[in-house]
Simulated assay, not measured.
Amino acid sequence: MNTPTTEIEIKRLGTGDVALAQQLIQLFRDVFEREDETDAEPNYLSQLLRNNTFVAFAAIQDSQVIGGLTAYELPMYYSASSEMFIYDVAVSAEYQRRGIGKLLLTALKKYCQQQNIPEIFVAAHAEDTHALEFYQATGGMAEKVVHFTYSEE
């Protein structure tokens, strides 16, 4: 049986955490069953982790990433403030439903409070009931929106 969340470290990834970022990317691939064609180069990941508008948190147990969250700070044009957009949240299958996702979201909320970012938002597919239940259980308020995607063809 896996250990409780008390032994899990939630860490904001920084410039020196390229190896952890690589583990996080692999975790996202596994959880989302996504086959990306290429890996981000270590130099690119280091540069991304230096970027203050990119925020990544990892849940780490025994030096292994077992969960993570990525988000982007979006400066607003109408005021001197920002909003935070959560891009991905995932927890390894064997650690799901143990409060790790909530710990990650709590870490992001605390970060946003420290940075005076008043609003966090996230998009979720309507058919992803697991994600919808998670966001509702953690205090998220659903809004009806239609998301459009443009792709180069």
Rank of each mutant, 00 (worst) to 15 (best):
C112G: 05
A93H: 14
A40M: 07
A107R: 07
L20H: 03
S79P: 04
A142G: 06
Y95L: 00
R12G: 01
S151V: 15
N51P: 07
A93F: 14
L132H: 08
G140V: 04
E9S: 03
N52H: 13
D128T: 03
A59G: 08
T6A: 12
A124S: 13
A93G: 14
T3D: 05
T70H: 04
F28S: 01
G68E: 03
Q96I: 10
A40E: 14
K110D: 13
V122W: 02
S82T: 03
T149W: 13
T70W: 03
Y77L: 15
I25E: 07
H130K: 15
N2Y: 09
A107D: 05
Q114M: 10
G68A: 01
L104C: 02
L13V: 01
H125M: 13
G101Q: 10
S63M: 14
I120H: 12
R98E: 04
N43Q: 15
H147Y: 10
L74D: 14
H130F: 10
Q113A: 12
G68R: 02
Q61N: 04
F32Q: 08
S151T: 12
K11H: 01
L48P: 10
E119H: 12
A131Y: 03
N51S: 12
I60L: 00
A124M: 03
A107N: 06
E35S: 13
N43K: 15
V89S: 03
Q114D: 13
F85T: 12
Q23V: 00
Y135H: 09
D17V: 04
A56H: 08
T38A: 12
A124K: 06
D128R: 08
T70E: 06
E83Q: 15
N52E: 15
T70G: 02
A21R: 06
F57Q: 00
P75G: 05
L13I: 02
M76V: 06
A123T: 15
F28V: 00
A80I: 11
L45H: 07
K102I: 02
R50K: 13
